[in-house]
Computed example of a mutant assay.
Amino acid sequence: MVSPESFFHVALKVPDVDAAVAFYRNHLEGDLLEHEQPAEDATGAENVEHAALTVGDKRVYVFDRAPYEAAGLVDELPYGFLHFGYVVPDVEAAAADLEDHVRLVMEPTVFGDLKVAFFEGPAGERLELLESLD
């Protein structure tokens, strides 16, 4: 059984990151933590515009496309909900515990200072398990 340390974020794919940021700031009192544009020479997972906000006591990430989508690790995803993110102490161990019970969408992979893995829950919802490597 996997015991997440915390619920960390929800991630959304949106057609207009600026419009999503404005909505969450203006209508839900979201606090903008970061808003990054990809560098001109960015490729793969780095070629993504994203913003992070705190809404209430949780983070909301909005992307023009998911980093794992931009890296070619999954097929193109529709706009809307991308995944829930849960912090675990060991992504490899958590993935091993879950592999016989849910469908693995993406093997444990390192993105910057995180190791992440993605699964589908029983209704097809995507779950991200993330471990800080720093």
Rank of each mutant, 00 (worst) to 15 (best):
E99A: 12
D97F: 03
P108W: 00
V91F: 03
P78D: 11
D90T: 03
H83Q: 10
P89G: 13
V105H: 05
E99M: 11
P108Q: 06
E76R: 15
L77P: 07
A95C: 14
E76F: 04
G80M: 07
H83E: 13
V87H: 11
A96W: 01
P89R: 14
A94L: 07
E107S: 08
F84E: 03
Y86H: 07
L104A: 10
E99T: 09
A95Y: 14
G85S: 14
A95K: 13
H101R: 12
L104W: 01
V91T: 08
D100S: 12
M106S: 02
V102T: 05
L77I: 08
L82I: 12
F81T: 07
V105Q: 10
L77V: 07
V102Q: 07
H83L: 06
A96I: 00
H83I: 09
E99G: 03
A96R: 11
V88M: 04
V102N: 07
L98C: 03
L82Y: 13
Y79S: 11
D97G: 04
F84H: 13
Y79T: 15
A96K: 12
L82P: 05
F84S: 09
R103C: 03
L98E: 03
H101P: 00
V87E: 15
Y86M: 07
V105S: 05
A96S: 12
D90V: 01
V87F: 08
P89Y: 09
H101Y: 09
G85D: 07
L98S: 03
D100Q: 09
G80S: 08
H101L: 11
L82R: 11
G85N: 04
Y79F: 15
D97R: 14
P89S: 15
L98Q: 04
H101K: 10
V105A: 13
V87C: 01
Y79V: 13
H101Q: 12
F81C: 06
G85H: 04
D100N: 10
R103M: 04
M106Y: 00
Y86V: 01
E92C: 06
A94F: 01
V91A: 10
P89W: 08
V91D: 02
D90R: 06
D97T: 04
L104P: 09
L82V: 09
G85W: 02
A93W: 02
G80F: 04
A93V: 03
A95L: 10
A94M: 10
Y79K: 14
V87Q: 12
H83R: 05
D97C: 04
D97W: 00
A96M: 08
E92W: 01
H101N: 10
V102D: 04
F84V: 09
A93E: 13
Y86R: 01
H83M: 08
E76H: 13
F84K: 01
A94D: 09
P89K: 13
V102H: 09
P108N: 02
V102P: 00
Y86K: 00
V102M: 10
A93R: 06
L82E: 11
R103I: 02
V102G: 00
A95V: 12
D90H: 05
Y86N: 04
D100A: 11
D100F: 00
H101I: 02
E76Q: 15
H101M: 07
A93Y: 00
Y86I: 00
A96C: 02
V91C: 08
A95D: 11
R103V: 11
L104V: 12
Y79C: 02
R103Q: 14
F84Q: 07
A94G: 08
Y79G: 07
G85P: 07
A93L: 10
H101V: 03
G80V: 07
V88K: 01
E92D: 15
R103H: 08
V88G: 05
